[in-house]
Design a protein around this nucleic acid. Structure first.
Length: 450
RNA sequence: GUGGCCAUGGUGUAGAGGCAACACAGCGGGUUGUGGUCCCGUUAUCACGGGUUCGAUUCCCGUUGGCCACCCCA
């Protein structure tokens, strides 16, 4: 018989021990849930993506803006929408010591809208085109391609309602992905005006009520809570029900229809890969007219990460935030997802950095000389490596080899006294002694850079 | 918020109710100033807490974390 369990004592929860652990001293701290490090091996992809994004934005006349990661909670409640999932269950909200109710930004548009109003950007030539590259925070359950802190590249165009802008922001996102080798398709739809949407929602609800017996439990809930969501339900029986369902295009007013047609015409003209998706609706309240989402062409098993980017027009937002009625549109791109895809496509980009030359040293005199010599070689535009902190020449030669250096420059006690340095051919295993002052020139000659 | 799977050195893995194994990486060596091969040494309270047991890293429960899916989204 098992003996009666002793009452469980309330125990302090020790953080799990991860990584290199010292035997004494405090336990290492774990990573906060849903957070991740971007390690050196990943950095080349981020850099490539950032450079392309920056170049594209500038070429299209966008200016960079960075708004605070912390804003009044009310900004998002009003901007993104009180009833949205982002606000209802995914915000990092807290009260500061001073009693302010603030949130970590869950998306970029509301903050930029706030900045536009705050700084009176309506007095600038319209439209105002802004881009940003910043971390976002959502207290969502971590999953593939989904983190609680994630980076977004965003474009926002404020102060003009022309459909060419809707097309341009979608196109730019698509174009950026293409520039880093990622194939994608723009899935696009129009949800018209809020009035159009209300009418359509009613029609849709009416339709699905007649099919209620065929809906799954989840879908029945959606029918009550947010009927538009029924359209992207993954329930297998849904496809045939959807085929018969009313489509929002049929409920758009003439102006909205015309707007949407023009967006599509511009995309045709630009040669962007897009497809109409009559069932695309988006979760944020502020969208009007055009909505789009940019999806991978192939959903590989390694990265079933959902969409790369999403965006659309949000003509009502600025007014909601207390500004004058200001039409606007934009897009946000989830950079972790893009980087994940880039890594699959180009696994070698993060490979070890190679060096043309390695400077090795021996003894304190040699180290001093090598310190200066390294600087001279580097300044001459040669990719040169070193490990001045190491004493053993053997370890340094190993390193030179790993860095793929073709030439090693060796400076020891003897060379310092003679005013020379050894240049070793790492492939041939031969070496020669040269005048220390001529090392840089000699290397340039050997590398064909002189 | 809900569900499924999982948790062993720095990394990737093996293992079994009673010594924790292998590979790679790191560091140090193989006689005093020279790399790629080879050899040797060194690195784990087996996530945390509790239970069952003579004995648990292995079985059970809980916690935390991870992965995946749902909800939703980037």
């Amino acid at each position: 018989m098992p003996s009666p369990k002793p009452a469980a004592k309330p125990k302090k929860i020790e953080p799990p021990v991860i990584g290199a652990v010292s035997k004494k001293g405090p336990a290492p701290l774990p990573l906060v849930r849903g957070m991740r490090d971007i390690l050196p091996a990943e950095w080349p992809y981020w850099q490539k993506l950032f450079r392309e994004a920056e170049r594209l934005a500038e070429e299209y006349g966008y200016e960079r803006i960075e708004t605070p990661a912390v804003e009044e909670t009310a900004l998002y409640v009003r901007g993104v929408g009180k009833a949205t999932d982002i606000v209802e269950k995914e915000m990092y909200s807290f009260e500061t010591m001073g009693g302010e109710k603030v949130s970590l930004r869950p998306e970029g548009t509301a903050g930029i809208g706030r900045a536009y109003i705050h700084h009176g950007m309506l007095n600038k030539p319209q439209p105002v085109k802004l881009w940003h590259w910043s971390p976002m925070f959502r207290h969502d359950r971590p999953q593939s391609g989904r983190y609680r802190q994630f980076w977004q590249f965003g474009l926002e165009v404020l102060g003009d309602k022309d459909p060419v802008l809707d097309a341009q922001t979608a196109f730019m996102a698509w174009r950026l992905l293409k520039a880093v080798g990622v194939e994608s398709t723009i899935h696009i739809n129009s949800i018209g005006t809020p009035e159009n949407r209300t009418h359509y929602k009613n029609a849709l609800t009416a339709y699905f009520r007649t099919k209620r017996h065929k809906l799954s439990e989840d879908d029945k809930k959606r029918l009550l809570k947010n009927p538009l969501r029924l359209l992207d339900s993954k329930d297998p029986g849904m496809d045939e029900l959807k085929a018969e369902a009313p489509q929002i295009v049929d409920w758009l007013d003439e102006a909205s229809k015309a707007h949407f047609m023009r967006v599509l015409e511009y995309l045709d003209e630009a040669g962007a890969a897009y497809q109409l998706d009559p069932y695309l609706v988006r979760g944020l309240d502020y969208y009007t007219q055009t909505v789009f989402e940019i999806l991978p062409v192939v959903d590989t098993p390694e990265s079933s990460t959902g969409s790369f980017a999403g965006g659309g027009r949000y003509d009502g937002l600025l007014e909601l935030l207390g500004g004058r009625p200001t039409p606007a549109c934009g897009m946000g791109m989830g950079l972790e997802r893009v980087v994940a895809r880039m890594r699959e496509l180009e696994p070698d980009l993060g490979a070890v950095k190679t060096r043309e030359v390695f400077v090795a040293q021996l003894g304190e005199q040699g180290r001093k000389k090598a310190f200066a010599l390294f600087e001279d070689i580097r300044a001459a535009g040669i990719r040169v490596g070193e490990c001045l902190s190491k004493d053993a020449i053997k370890a340094q030669m190993e390193m030179a080899n790993k860095m793929g250096a073709k030439w090693a420059v060796i400076v020891g006690q003897k060379e310092v006294l003679d005013g020379t340095a050894i240049i070793r051919d790492m492939d041939a295993g031969t070496q020669e002694t040269v005048d220390a002052r001529k090392v840089v020139h000699e290397l340039q000659r050997k590398l064909g850079k002189a």
